[in-house]
Nucleic acid binder design. Sequence first.
DNA 1: GCGCGGCGTGGAATCGATTCCATAGAATCG
DNA 2: CGATTCTATGGAATCGATTCCACGCCGCGC
Lengths: 337, 337
Amino acid sequence: MDSTVTIKDVAERAGVSAGTASRVLSGNPATSAAARERVRAAAAELGYRPDARARALRSARSHAVGLLVSDVRNPFFADIAHGAEQAALAASYVTLLANANEDTAQQDIYLEAFLTQRVDGIIIAPQGEGGGNLRALERARTPLVFVDRTVEGFDVPSVTADNAQGVELAVAHLAAEGHTRIGYIGGPRSVSTGRARHDAFLAAVARHGLEEDPELITAGDFRRASGGTAATALLSGRKPPTALLAADSLMAVGALGAVRRQGRRIGSDLALVAFDNIDWFGELAPPLTVVAHDARELGEHAMRLVLDVIEGRPAESVVLPMHLVVRESSTGRAAGA
Amino acid sequence: MDSTVTIKDVAERAGVSAGTASRVLSGNPATSAAARERVRAAAAELGYRPDARARALRSARSHAVGLLVSDVRNPFFADIAHGAEQAALAASYVTLLANANEDTAQQDIYLEAFLTQRVDGIIIAPQGEGGGNLRALERARTPLVFVDRTVEGFDVPSVTADNAQGVELAVAHLAAEGHTRIGYIGGPRSVSTGRARHDAFLAAVARHGLEEDPELITAGDFRRASGGTAATALLSGRKPPTALLAADSLMAVGALGAVRRQGRRIGSDLALVAFDNIDWFGELAPPLTVVAHDARELGEHAMRLVLDVIEGRPAESVVLPMHLVVRESSTGRAAGA
DNA sequence: GCGCGGCGTGGAATCGATTCCATAGAATCG
DNA sequence: CGATTCTATGGAATCGATTCCACGCCGCGC
């Protein structure tokens, strides 16, 4: 009844050799009906549970996929993890979830751990310039897939969102609402989504003929506090914006608090559009307008992609569309320009 | 340069046997300075990365701890995971994070996976009555620790919060603000925290001489939607409450939306106190009053506890205190009783 | 100068499961 | 009925690292 039941114990109880027991349990057809029955019974009675490590050691397949997200506490990544996990489960793979905590050093630690655990594949929302263990990964030939973000110079399949399109949707919407001064709270340039959204914002502003004022552009680090700092800076400029666009949900929340502390109200005094459609953004007062991509779908796609690579099927990168969910945070009377 | 560098390759390059190479790399003192130097050089040159599975197989220690949370998308559990992970890292253990998704079947799947992976220990925020693989775990003698929640009939160390105290703090605060009709949005009775908070609420209401009306008591499932349903029901009763107490953060968010859709405002029209101090609760308009326990600390404690059990040190259950963080959601003028 | 203790090392066994190989016995065919 | 193929099986090798055992060699002591 102990957990130390090995296949030998099962074999002995069934009166067969370990080889035969293994064949029965792995569904090898070269087994007699009698052996099948007795081995299965013995396994059930003893509560046999194969040792995944021994199995993986011999058969060079661990049936585990490492998933390294940048920040578990960011609901967007939690959703990605959830989607990936469900997809893995459906293919009877196990997901090992690890958290880089927006920190390159910690990212390296977990990549190292994945490598020594000999996972069959790795999904990562990478950060940094691609130094450290990312290069080691490439050398180790472990199947790798990028999700949400990419790193230049890596020929790796990825699942990303159409950031340029998302930004364009947001800016077009705000422009249509009559805004001409939009403050942008961007992400770090060390992350691909940070760069893509930044560039797309500049382009969209130009395209719609809005005010191109460098004072309207700020950059945070995708964490909450930086959104507050950025919003405060934007609102205390000489000529503050009438609308804000935040490049991720955590910074949007930070901005929310900063705006409130300045005594201004989202929706009526100031429009706000955020990236990432977090579940509860629709429950707030006022509900937030967002540029959304389905994080769960992102995760599912990424998992399917890495399984494709692992199992030798062709794998193509995917770019998912973004869409605009208009809520009240951007449709109170627009402050006149 | 491939990842298939074994200790034999290292040994060969260094001109020693595999045994000696192993001794050098594991810091065994019975090695000569010459061997140490050459083995280390060879390992570095070849990019040797020991195979964790082979190592674990032989030495019966995987240096991995399984962490099974009820719902990764609940920020409270994401914080627990984060705390546990950091504590594990400090002790050079790896955390395998899995998500039960508030589903007993999925909980069993991952417990099974942990067992076959032969993790050294498991931390779980359990759900259900303790059937299924929870019993198998006990038999397998895998070190086990409960976090946040417990299951009756298991003699397992745990890290929990003082729920009774938390509820009492919340009710006392609301009573002091002049409320006599408090609506309670509780959790499921199948979860220990759901039961504890429910019972504590009844006791606190009685103790403070508030109205004991069964219509004021509702129960959700710790998910967002159920909080909205419960709040709607409470507010459309014959004599609606003037304050709400929600037993977790997701249900509080659901309630937030329901209240807004009813055209009432948190803070001025209706007080709200929530369990769990989610980062961004302080940023909302109005900021939410919460009964808080430090989720990260909960996770850290749980990890330390399970490592104590694994390494044979005595392990004592811990009950962490809760405290009240008063913000504006409960201090607008109290609606008169 | 001989013996004994200790250090460093190579070789082999081991962990648990899978898989190759050889073989015994049954089944099939001419 | 003998030769051959096929099937089920046991035994052994294997995966990669650790650890036990035994041995050679050095130095020290008598």
